[in-house]
């Protein structure tokens, strides 16, 4: 017994090292498993507060740019509305305060964004109290950003499309050929669309949009344009490099999308499987 104690005391540093190392490896592995990182996340009171504070200063410096983007988006929306004028009565359409579509949009500000690692996350300054829940889509006016993965009272964490575990359904604008949007970890402006069947007619510069097969993003949101493409090893599917419309290194404000009918559709699909 004495010897065991002596051994433990003599090697207490090595033992402490091994225990702490095991803890950190455990946290790392848990973080690598999708949707399971329960303990360590930046969407908590302290880190969220710190990021929010530093972002308040940062946002102020980019006001010009954000204004420009808003103007651009307003311009786009005005064009759409003015075209609607022709067909439907105006009064009904302009009353947009009662949004009765399938999707509900909320605004949020990105208070932390990284893109230099292989698994990247963003932190938003809105959380459960503002009605944000897990698996809501996140977009900007130019393209998609990611999917909400953890929610706290006031902050939420988003899995960026620049994350090796992110897979988003996307398709060609011209035809209905679809594939999965992934990222190879290299360039934050280029993502990959894989598993596109060989029959798809591809051309450089074609637009890629969201596919609408998932319940997260509505169909038809712009993602990026084709930069180049090649057949994969099986020679039957294309791997396409896509240049994002969105500058993922510079995101200010985002929209969080809620699919209002999601529960209903999921219920229906569960019934089918039984």
């Amino acid at each position: 017994m004495q010897q065991i104690f002596n051994f433990l005391i003599r090697n207490k540093n090595s033992i402490l090292f091994l225990i702490l190392f095991a803890v950190s490896i455990f946290l790392t592995i848990q973080n690598h498993a999708f949707h399971k990182s329960r303990f360590v996340s930046s969407a908590n009171y302290v880190t969220g507060g710190v990021y929010n504070w530093s972002n308040n200063i940062n946002t102020y410096l980019h006001l010009d740019e954000y204004n420009e983007r808003l103007l651009e988006e307003n311009n786009k929306l005005r064009n759409i509305i003015s075209n609607i004028h022709d067909s439907i009565s105006v009064e009904k359409q302009l009353d947009s305060t009662s949004f009765e579509g399938d999707y509900l949009f909320r605004t949020a500000r990105v208070i932390n964004n990284n893109f230099s690692k292989i698994d990247n996350y963003l932190t938003l300054n809105r959380g459960e109290e503002s009605g944000i829940k897990q698996e809501y889509g996140v977009i900007t006016s130019q393209g998609i950003v990611g999917i909400v993965d953890r929610v706290n009272d006031n902050y939420s964490r988003v899995i960026s499309i620049l994350n090796s575990r992110s897979r988003i359904n996307a398709q060609l604008n011209n035809t209905n050929h679809f594939g999965s949007l992934v990222w190879n970890g290299k360039d934050p402006n280029i993502v990959q669309l894989i598993d596109v069947p060989r029959q798809a007619p591809l051309q450089k510069g074609d637009t890629i949009i969201t596919g609408g097969r998932s319940l997260i993003f509505p169909k038809g949101l712009p993602i990026g344009s084709i930069q180049d493409f090649s057949l994969d090893q099986t020679q039957s599917y294309y791997t396409i490099n896509i240049k994002l419309f969105n500058d993922m290194t510079n995101i200010g404000y985002v929209y969080v999308i809620e699919n209002v009918n999601k529960e209903e559709i999921e219920k229906l699909q569960d019934n089918n499987e039984q």
């Binding site: 702490l20 946290l27 930046s42």
Partner: peptide, 16 residues
């Protein structure tokens, strides 16, 4: 790590 959302990678590296 908590700030970076990176699990325990910085903790492990510092420990080593």
């Amino acid at each position: 790590d908590i700030f970076e959302d990176s699990g325990g990678i910085n903790a492990a590296a510092c420990l080593v």
